[in-house]
Design a protein around this nucleic acid. Structure first.
Length: 884
RNA sequence: GGGCGCGUAGCUCAGUGGGAGAGCACCCGCCUUACAAGCGGGGGGUCGCUGGUUCGAAACCAGCCGUGCCCACCA
């Protein structure tokens, strides 16, 4: 009985729980929510600390509580999810811990802005307690939007373990480590030059400052008079009001006579010393530098070395406080005013404008940072950073890709002490109390804060990154020795963008090694690149090229977004994102959908073992499947996401769909029931394995298809395919390649001849035996639309194919000689070029003597093939001419 | 100033000693019974420049040009 390989089936319920959904297009929105809820409800993502399975754990880089999903998150979470879904299928007990960061400045600024807009008040108007309460309310109302967006993306996080950096537990961890560091002398309070933002009115750490080349001015000023004068150059004229010395290099003969003397500071009239300091570069400018210890980090150090007074001339908003005509001016206005005054006194020697130099800006509001002398809390990092460097140096922590290791070392080996106090209200309050008699008391989580008159807590809060640095272990209950900690710590992997290597990764290393007695916080750090726009430009609101990933998920489905992001993810490199590529990925999902739909409608099955006796086509696809399984597994294991997805894409589309399915149709309609049954089983096999391999990247569509195809519970907990190598079959691969070349050549001929794709052409095939494709003649005829020769068969064209097959076609006398001549001419040129190149090599004695044997053999083969091609094509051209 | 990249088809990128590749875009022909979100066919690149190493260089080395990022206390 003849088996139809296709039959019309009415579209049935889209609910994958009720059975088979065989619409002709994949509709993501009909399955995504249902499946995600099911995965969560079934507890697939809930880690079991008591499990016997090997643990694999990862904490999510906590997004800002006020944030929303952007493409960077989507990429990062797609990569994490892909890694973890594979680990889960491999049988690991996977913990993926989600949560959010309170994001000190970012959140506070947002709420302050809201307060100003809605009530016209500042935070000072409402007071600290009320303001913090408002931030909490804001967080409850608007925060956490991103968590819902993560569900859309399909990420397998353990919602039962969700954490927030301001949770009680995490706050306790913050207090614990603060006290421990304090008692170890690794946290101290000191008056130092720090980066101050005059807009946000808070201290910043070094990495919260962005340097930019700005156009400024370089003004040279003469201090003192006559022999006792010196010219100094500065980009910040206004700071001269706070100068307390002039410094020169100790070995500079030009100024040797001035060292130790005093000269008069213009405008101010103060006498200031000339000091010798090796920091001064005699080559730069005049070789003399003004020293403002309270407003420049270098000058501060010179001041320390020479016990110079420190004169602070600015307030928190960077307005001049020095008494006199400039008091109250902004630093910018003061710069002009002071310059004008100096010019009037004839003290300006030179002015260079514009003068381009590096200027620090607040990374949050872009205000020019003011170096400011201020009493702040610091972490003494030297010892901690050394340990953090060693952990990578000795291989206990691996950084992927390794090319980014120099950046890591650059940071940990040159780190300055970390300023951790912030003059904000939203954050972890510094757990230190000051007593009425100058006492300082650090309070741990189990201590009772001091009470009574005169005791006050430090008003500042900690840098956001202080609590982020504890994230991998504070989220697991540290400092308590919890089951999660003993089971899942150290974490297996940290996935994050290289842009926060310093902000976060390094600081986790600092605190992690310290808090956990030298235990590393993670074994591997995987640094991914940034998502850029389709032209490779950085995405930013000001450029207007930002993309809301939800829009793309709405249009094309979560899987499409995930697949396109994974496909662009080459290790450590930035990647562009383009809506067209997401659309292409959507098309791929649809392709998988329809291929599986075809297979299911034709009775594909996964029941029972594969037949031991397989035909060459089945052996070929099984051979390729085994190879692809090995490749994809290897790529995923080494975080080569782009290669893993590209391999799958090409296998599924170019090999399975374009060739195997078409050949399967031949088998299914052949009337050979045994062959058809084998084909149905192989179809089921290839799809089963392919869907499992694809699942880490495109979980929704694969889950829908796989459960329908196999009746299995879920791909989330299905076993990960293992390549055995036993099905590799080079002979079958060669045989199918020969078949493909015949079909392709005929198709090419047909296209050149302008034959309609559907038109069947009578043809006689010969040489099939020698080419090893004799059993495939029926398939070749179907795929190339060639009919058996009829009674009046009169071939008008003879097509020679490189593998020795000849196809004679009866075109009813309509052969387009010109088109065919042109085609053969192009082929001939290609073959002649190949022959010339290969024979040139073979004529080179050095090549023959020095190149490895296999290379020489390969060139000989190619030369022979090229010669044969030339002969064949020449003969065909001659035949064509004689016909014309 | 130091460090790390990048420069390959119109666009975005793989390829890292031995036959120039992919996706998208483009051109031609097709609604051929899984899929027009599809099918078949096709065109397109002196691999930034110069020199070197080598039998052989897109790949390795040097220099140059262009470009991006990170770090940095040259007033």
């Amino acid at each position: 009985m003849r088996t139809a390989y296709h039959r019309r089936v009415p579209e049935i319920s889209p609910d994958p729980s009720t059975g088979r959904d065989i619409a002709s297009q994949y509709e993501p929105r009909r399955v995504e929510d249902v499946l995600y809820r099911r995965w969560v409800d079934r507890g697939y993502f809930t880690a079991d600390a008591a499990s016997e399975k090997p643990p694999f754990s990862l904490v999510i880089p906590p997004p800002n509580v006020t944030g929303s999903l952007h493409l960077g998150h989507a990429l990062e979470q797609t990569l994490m999810d892909a890694v973890l879904r594979r680990r889960r299928m491999l049988g690991d007990e996977v913990l993926w811990l989600p949560g959010m960061d309170h994001a000190g400045i970012a959140t506070q600024v947002l709420v302050e802005k809201h307060l100003a807009e809605t009530e016209g008040k500042t935070r000072h108007d409402v007071g600290r307690e009320d303001f913090v309460a408002r931030v909490w309310r804001w967080k409850e109302e608007y925060g956490g939007k991103i968590l819902g967006q993560m569900r859309r993306l399909g990420v397998g996080v353990d919602w039962s373990r969700e954490r927030f950096t301001m949770d009680d537990g995490l706050s306790k961890a913050v207090q614990t480590i603060f006290k421990r560091l304090y008692e170890d002398g690794l946290i101290y309070r000191a008056e130092r030059i720090i980066n101050w933002c005059p807009t946000d009115h808070t201290a910043l750490s070094d990495i919260e400052v962005d340097h930019a080349d700005d156009e400024g001015e370089l003004v040279s000023i003469r201090y003192g008079d006559g022999d006792r004068s010196v010219v100094v150059a500065t980009t910040r004229v206004e700071t001269m009001l706070g100068d307390t010395a002039v410094a020169v290099h100790p070995d500079d003969p030009r100024y040797a006579h001035l060292i130790g003397t005093e000269i008069e500071l213009p405008l101010v009239g103060r006498m200031i010393p000339v000091v010798a300091d090796a920091h001064v570069d005699p080559e730069f400018g005049t070789g003399a530098v003004k020293v403002t210890p309270a407003h420049d980090p270098n000058d501060f150090e010179i001041g320390q070395r020479h016990s110079l007074p420190m004169v602070n001339i600015m307030d928190e908003a960077a307005r001049i406080t020095a008494h006199g005509p400039f008091e109250g001016l902004s630093r910018e206005d003061a710069r002009h005013a002071v310059t004008a005054a100096l010019r009037e006194e004839g003290r300006i020697v030179a002015e260079k404008r514009p003068y381009v130099h590096a200027v620090g800006h607040c990374s949050r509001c872009d205000t020019v940072v003011e170096p400011r002398l201020s009493l702040q809390w610091f972490v003494r990092v030297e010892k901690l950073a050394k340990a953090a460097g060693d952990a990578v140096r000795d291989g206990r922590v691996t950084i992927e890709p390794p090319a980014l290791k120099p950046r890591y070392f650059d940071w940990v080996d040159n780190m300055h002490d970390w300023c951790i106090s912030r003059q904000l209200w939203w954050g972890h309050r510094i757990p230190v109390w000051y007593g009425p008699n100058g006492e300082t008391l650090c309070v741990g989580p189990n201590d009772t804060p001091p009470a009574g008159d005169g005791w006050t807590q430090d008003p500042d809060v900690l840098d956001t990154w202080f609590s982020s640095a504890l994230w991998p272990f504070s989220t697991m209950g540290w400092p308590a020795r919890t089951a999660d900690l003993s089971r899942f710590y150290p974490t297996s992997l940290l996935v994050t963008g290289y842009d926060i290597l310093f902000f976060w990764v390094v600081r986790i290393m600092l605190f992690g090694l310290y808090a956990m007695d030298g235990e590393v916080p993670f074994r591997t750090v995987l640094l991914h690149g940034l998502v850029r726009d389709k032209y490779g430009k950085k995405m930013s609101k000001s450029r207007g090229n930002t993309v809301d990933p939800l829009d793309w998920m709405d249009s094309y489905g979560s899987d499409a977004l995930r697949f396109s992001l994974a496909r662009g993810a080459n290790p450590g490199l930035d990647q562009p994102a383009n809506e067209e590529w997401v659309a292409a990925a959507r098309n791929s999902c649809n392709k998988m959908w329809n291929a599986t739909r075809f297979a299911i409608l034709n009775g594909a099955t996964v029941e029972g073992d594969l037949p031991t006796e397989l035909g060459p086509v089945d052996r070929w696809i099984c051979s390729r499947l085994d190879e692809v399984t090995a490749e994809v597994d290897g790529y995923l294991a080494s975080y080569e996401f782009a290669k893993a997805t590209a391999t799958l894409y090409h296998f599924v589309w170019d090999e399975f769909c374009d060739w195997y399915l078409e050949l399967a149709k031949v088998s299914l309609t052949s009337g050979d029931d045994a062959a058809a049954a084998t084909t149905r089983r192989v179809l089921g096999e290839v799809l089963d394995v392919s869907l499992r391999l694809l699942h880490p990247f495109v979980p929704f569509v694969t889950e829908t298809l796989w459960t329908t195809l196999t009746g299995g519970e879920s791909l989330v907990v299905a076993p990960w395919p293992q390549a055995t190598g036993q099905r590799r079959d080079a002979a079958a691969e060669a045989e199918v390649a020969a078949l493909q070349s015949v079909v392709t050549e005929v198709r090419r001929f047909r296209s050149d001849q302008g034959l309609r794709p559907g038109q069947r052409v009578p043809a006689r095939l010969s040489g099939l035996d020698a080419a090893g494709v004799a059993p495939h003649e029926p398939a070749i005829r179907v795929l190339a639309r060639l009919e058996a020769p009829t009674d009046g068969f009169a071939p008008t064209a003879t097509l020679g194919i490189a593998n020795g097959v000849t196809v004679e076609l009866d075109l009813s006398g309509t052969l387009d000689v010109a088109a065919e001549t042109a085609r053969l001419g192009r082929d001939l040129a290609t073959a002649e070029k190949e022959r010339a190149q290969t024979e040139a090599k073979l004529g080179n004695a050095d090549f023959l003597a020095k190149a490895p044997d296999h290379v020489v053999a390969n060139i000989r083969d190619r030369a022979a093939i090229a010669s044969a091609e030339i002969e064949r094509i020449t003969a065909q051209l001659a035949a064509l001419r004689s016909r014309a």
